[in-house]
Write a protein that binds this DNA or RNA. Structure first.
Length: 593
RNA sequence: GGGGUAUUCGUUCAAUGGUAGGACAGUGGAUUGUCGAUCCAUAGACAGGAGUUCGAUCCUCCUAUACCCCGCCA
C-alpha cells in the first residue's frame, strides 16, 4: 500500500483543520452528485466524510465513481471545515471533511449479504454465517468494546486487591457431576479421555492449598448442555478464590468489583453494599432464586384465605402438603378471558396444573373462583394482598417450589406486559441460605444444589445424615436484573467433612477416591479455610449492554443447536484422525415417532 | 427429549387457490454540498419432499434450518 494511514477516521475533528492526513478504512456509504463525490469512510474509531472533486485525475475519478460499500480504500488529503449549513451533527467528525488529493483502492468488496449500516436487515442466522461482517456494525463494535473495558476493569480491580491471575488446565479429568462434559480423546493414552473444564473448581481449591491466597482467572468453561438465549456451550467466567475468608468478606469484595465494572464501562453507579435476601424469601416474594428487584409485584401467601374458601382445589392441595400463593396484579381486572388463558398456558409451561383468578371490583370479587369465596374469605384476601378495585389476583395451588416458580414467571411476564421494567435501571442483589441439596427430578436421589465442595452451614452439619434436605449451604448467588450472574460458596476444606458430603450424595468411598482422591489428599496437607465465586462474564456484559442475547456480546458465538454457521463446526473428521485416536463411530440411531 | 414461532428476489417487507409487488443492496445512466442523497432505467425470489386440487407459493402432512421456551444447565 502506497498511502499508509497517519490518522484514524473517527478521531478527526476541527482541531486538525488544514492538516494533511492519510486515512485508511472501509467505504460505509457513498453519494455521487456528479461533479462532487462523497464517501463516508469507516474504521474502528468511527466515520469521516471524504470529498472527491471532479478536478482529480481521471484515473482516480474512474475508480472512485465505481466504489462500492465495504471497499477498502486509502485517502490522502486535507482536513477542511465544512460549510456552516453542511455540518453533520450525527457523527463526531461532522464539522470537518477530508478533501481528497490522492487515492488508492486497497481491496474491492463484493455486495454484502446484508447491509452493514442497517441493523434491521439480515436474519441472525445469516449474520452468524458472516460474523466478520456483523462485527463491523456499530452495535457489535460497541458491545465488544464494552466487554474489553469490563475485562480490563476486572483485571485491574482484582490485581489491586492482591489477586493473582493463574491459568489452570483446559484438558482435565472428567468428573461427571451435574453438567455433561465435553470429552477430548487422548491419542497417546488409548481409550482415555480428557474433559474440558465446566469450571476450574478443583484447581482453584488446590491453589488455595498451595497458599496462593487470592486467585483469579478470566477463563473459558465448557458445558455440553442445551443452549438458550443466555447460555452457550463455551463461555467465560471471572473465577475467583480466596483463603481465610468468610461469606461477608467475599461478597464485599465482589460486589465492589461489579460496581467498579459498571462504573468504568457504562458509568452507572451500583450502590453497595448490595441487599441480601435468603433463598426462601426470594422464592416467597419473587418466585425466583434470581429475582429481578427493579419492580415490586410481589407474591403473597394466602393460605388463611384459602382455608376460608369453599374451593376444593385449595383444600385438597393443602391437605397433600401443597401451598397456595397469590399474585395481585394492579389494574389488570380488565383482562379478557383470552388473556387469562394465555397466562394459564404460561403457567402450565412451568408445571402449574391450572391458574385460578378473581377480579376485584368496587362491589366485591367477580369472575373466576369468586363464587367459592364468602365475605369472610374475601376480607382475608384483600387484607393480605392489599388489592383494590380494578386489580386481578392470580392463584396457584401446588407444591411449594412449583407454585412459586409459576407465579415468578407470571410476575416477569406481567412486568414486561405493563412496562414496569426501566431498561436503564440496574439492580443487583445477593441470594443466600440455599439448601445444600436438592432432589434429582428423575432419580429422586439427592444432588448438590451448588456443587459437592460447598460447605454446609456450621449449625446444620449435624443434620447432614439425619435430615439432609434441611441443611443450608454457605453459598451465595448474585442476581442482576433477574439474571444469575455469579455464584459461589465457602468450600469444605476438611477431609472428613468432604467425605461425609460425598456419602450424603450417594458417592461411595471408592468412587470418591477415584474421582476426587487428589483433592481429598490435598486436604490432608494443611488446607486453609477458603471460598470463592465465579461470575459469567458473557451474561454480565449482556445485562450491562442491555442486550437480550448472550450471542450479541460474544465475538464468535454458536447457534442454539451448538453450531457455528460461519466455519461449520462441529464437523466430521478424517478416518485417519479417528484411527489415531482408536475411535470407531457407531451408526446414528435415528428413531422416528 | 418436548412445545411454540418462522422460512417469498442478495437483504427486508407485501400480496395471492390461476401473470408474485415495493424498498434497500447490484448493474447502467443523470446529477457540484450530499450525509440512510436524489431521479430514471435494468436484472433478480415462493426452503425441500409428498398429498388434496383441473391447477398449490397459498390448504394438509413430513423433512430441513433458525429462533424462543420447558426439561436439562453440580
Amino acid at each position: 500500500m502506497r498511502i499508509k494511514r497517519d490518522h484514524r477516521c473517527g478521531e478527526l475533528n476541527k482541531s486538525q483543520v488544514a492538516k494533511e492526513v492519510r486515512v485508511n478504512g472501509w467505504v460505509n456509504t457513498r453519494r455521487d452528485l456528479g461533479g462532487i463525490f462523497f464517501v463516508d469512510l469507516r474504521d474502528r474509531y468511527g466515520l469521516v466524510q471524504v470529498r472527491f472533486n471532479n478536478d482529480l485525475p481521471s484515473e482516480i475519478l474512474d475508480v472512485v465513481k465505481h466504489l462500492n460499500n465495504e471497499d477498502v480504500i486509502a485517502v490522502s488529503g486535507t482536513v477542511v471545515a465544512r460549510p456552516e449549513d453542511s455540518i453533520n451533527k450525527k457523527i463526531p467528525s461532522g464539522e470537518i471533511e477530508i478533501e481528497a488529493k490522492d487515492f488508492e483502492l486497497l481491496n474491492k468488496a463484493i455486495p454484502t449479504p446484508f447491509e452493514i449500516t442497517k441493523r434491521e436487515t439480515g436474519s441472525e442466522d445469516l449474520r452468524l454465517k458472516y460474523r466478520y461482517l456483523d462485527l463491523r456494525t456499530e452495535e457489535l463494535k460497541k458491545n465488544m468494546f464494552m466487554r474489553h473495558k469490563a475485562s480490563q476493569a476486572v483485571r485491574r480491580y482484582l490485581t489491586e486487591h492482591d489477586f493473582m491471575e493463574i491459568e489452570t488446565p483446559v484438558l482435565m479429568k472428567s468428573t461427571p457431576e451435574g453438567a455433561r462434559d465435553f470429552l477430548v480423546p487422548s491419542r497417546i493414552n488409548p481409550h482415555k479421555f480428557y474433559a474440558l473444564p465446566q469450571s476450574p473448581q478443583t484447581y482453584k481449591q488446590l491453589l488455595m492449598v498451595a497458599g496462593y491466597d487470592r486467585y483469579f482467572q478470566i477463563v473459558k468453561c465448557f458445558r455440553d448442555e442445551d443452549l438458550r438465549a443466555d447460555r452457550q456451550p463455551e463461555f467465560t467466567q471471572i473465577d475467583c478464590e480466596m483463603s481465610f475468608v468468610d461469606e461477608e468478606e467475599i461478597r464485599g469484595i465482589m460486589e465492589d468489583m461489579i460496581a467498579t465494572v459498571y462504573k468504568e464501562s457504562i458509568g452507572v453507579d451500583i450502590p453497595t453494599p448490595l441487599p441480601v435476601i435468603t433463598f426462601h424469601d426470594a422464592m416467597e416474594r419473587y418466585g425466583s432464586d434470581k429475582p429481578d428487584v427493579r419492580f415490586d409485584l410481589e407474591i403473597k401467601n394466602v393460605e388463611d384465605f384459602a382455608k376460608a374458601t369453599d374451593f376444593s382445589v385449595f383444600h385438597s392441595c393443602m391437605e397433600n402438603g401443597g401451598v397456595i400463593r397469590a399474585l395481585p396484579v394492579p389494574d389488570a381486572a380488565t383482562f379478557s378471558r383470552k388473556k387469562i388463558d394465555e397466562l394459564t398456558e404460561l403457567g402450565k409451561k412451568y408445571g402449574a396444573k391450572g391458574l385460578a383468578f378473581v377480579k376485584v371490583q368496587e362491589d366485591g370479587l367477580q369472575g373466576g373462583i369468586s363464587k367459592f369465596i364468602n365475605d369472610e374469605a374475601a376480607k382475608l384476601l384483600l387484607d393480605k394482598t392489599d388489592a383494590k378495585a380494578g386489580d386481578l389476583i392470580l392463584f396457584v395451588a401446588d407444591e411449594w417450589e412449583t407454585a412459586l416458580t409459576v407465579l415468578g414467571a407470571l410476575r416477569i411476564f406481567l412486568a414486561k406486559e405493563f412496562s414496569l421494567i426501566n431498561k436503564n435501571e440496574h439492580k443487583a442483589i445477593w441470594v443466600v441460605d440455599f439448601p445444600l441439596f436438592e432432589k434429582d427430578g428423575e432419580t429422586g436421589r439427592l444432588v448438590a444444589r451448588h456443587h459437592p465442595f460447598t460447605s454446609p452451614k456450621l449449625e446444620d452439619i449435624d443434620k447432614l445424615e439425619s435430615d439432609p434436605e434441611s441443611v443450608k449451604a454457605r453459598a451465595y448467588d448474585m442476581a442482576l436484573n433477574g439474571y444469575e450472574i455469579g455464584g459461589g460458596s465457602i468450600r469444605i476444606y476438611q477431609k472428613d467433612l468432604q467425605q461425609r458430603m460425598f456419602k450424603a450424595l450417594g458417592i461411595g468411598e471408592e468412587e470418591a477416591q477415584e474421582k476426587f482422591g487428589f483433592l481429598l489428599g490435598a486436604f490432608e496437607y494443611g488446607a486453609p479455610p477458603h471460598g470463592g465465586i465465579a461470575f459469567g462474564l458473557d451474561r454480565l456484559i449482556m445485562v450491562l449492554t442491555g442486550e437480550d442475547s448472550i450471542r450479541d456480546v460474544i465475538a464468535f458465538p454458536k447457534t442454539t443447536t451448538a453450531q457455528s454457521p460461519m466455519d461449520g463446526a462441529p464437523s466430521g473428521v478424517d478416518q485417519k484422525q479417528l484411527d489415531d485416536l482408536h475411535i470407531e463411530l457407531k451408526a446414528i440411531n435415528k428413531e422416528k415417532n
